[in-house]
Design a binder for these strands. Structure first.
Lengths: 196, 196
DNA sequence: TGACAAGTCGAGTCGTCACTCATATTTTCG
DNA sequence: CGAAAATATGAGTGACGACTCGACTTGTCA
């Protein structure tokens, strides 16, 4: 499940271990301070010299993208798990809720979605595999929910992704007084359901 | 309508003119590149030395806040104009549409809303006047729309602001292929209307 | 008009950050 | 075990951006 480097050569044992550590540290650091956090901080948290970080990820951009790709994979996992649930409608809406939770926990989480879901942004270019999986997973959730009569027929995947991004972004800075967030979700969900 | 400096002293003629130029240039520059754009660039665009920018806005933060406050004032203006319209429901929804237009045109426009509308963010602290006006204006639009039966009774201002922020943020990076944006607005509007 | 305060100018300071590279260390494998 | 290759280290480099300050210019007002 780890991010495999582009080269086919097998990594030395310590190198593989350090790569994992760096990636994990980056995930933490970026979750707290966003992708603007310094590479130094990532190295410190990983217990590794800064040169090591750059050996594995030659550019800060690549490090950020690797973390984002990991998050996309997590989202896809959750979406795929949900898409086997009995109640397709509930599963679809549950994914939204999960998204807001993750956005609150991780700085710049919405950026992941935005890059992967909508335009040909950075993640879309650097990790086409992951991003197309995400679109596919959301599309499946949506289609199943529509078959179950839980979501309007005229809604398509791009709209859903855009709404998700919006919700995620709003959640990112809504105070944890989530009464408001719950109400917002109610509103959006009502808009997504077939005419009452 | 210009941003008045805190001091009571009247500014010298050239100083007042330069202040305007700097503010206008900053509005442009930040609209294009976001608030991360350099102060140098603002000075260049204003046709002024960098020292002059710092004389009027001793900190980059203050410059950004001044621009944001100006945008909030513009929003309030539009909201107040709309709140005198005959069709209160249409006016309320028109404000959303206007918001997406502005967000597409101006980088970091949603941040303005977010800071002013929701939490006690930077703008809320530095320009309490403007931000409370915005909340009031949106509240008026909402109340009138509800009286007209165009919006669900159980929706409150905080939810509306949060939804607006989400929409604005999503609009900020949706490609100008706005078919999607229009559909998203449809969904949200349906969610805001009374049960069909 | 003259002189002084207010304002402008812009080269320079300081701090931060991504990124490099020569040296030291570790792993691997015959 | 003992190279040789891979990897780690971390002080150093260069670029950039916010902010300063002393010399210079301009507006104001008696």
């Amino acid at each position: 499940m780890a991010d495999t480097p582009h080269t086919g050569k097998p990594l030395r044992a310590d190198a593989r271990r350090n790569r994992e550590r760096v990636l994990a540290a980056a995930e933490e650091v970026f979750a707290e301070g966003g992708p603007a956090a310094s590479t130094e901080e990532v190295a410190r948290r990983a217990g590794v010299a800064i040169g090591t970080v750059f050996r594995h990820f030659p550019t800060k951009e690549e490090l950020v993208q690797a973390v984002f790709a990991q998050r996309v994979r997590q989202l896809v996992d959750e979406a795929e798990t949900l898409s086997t649930a009995d109640d397709a409608g509930a599963a679809f809406f549950a994914f939204f809720v999960r998204l807001t939770e993750l956005s609150i926990a991780k700085h710049a989480f919405a950026d992941v979605l935005a890059g992967a879901g909508i335009d040909v942004g950075a993640i879309g270019r650097t990790h086409p595999q992951e991003t197309s999986h995400l679109r596919a997973a959301v599309s499946t959730l949506l289609t199943r929910a529509q078959r179950a009569g839980a979501v309007r027929e005229d809604v398509r995947t791009p709209e859903v992704l855009t709404v998700m991004i919006g919700i995620a972004r709003a959640a990112e800075q809504t105070p944890s007084d989530s009464q408001v967030l719950a109400r917002v979700l109610d509103i959006v969900f009502d808009g997504l359901r077939p005419a009452r």
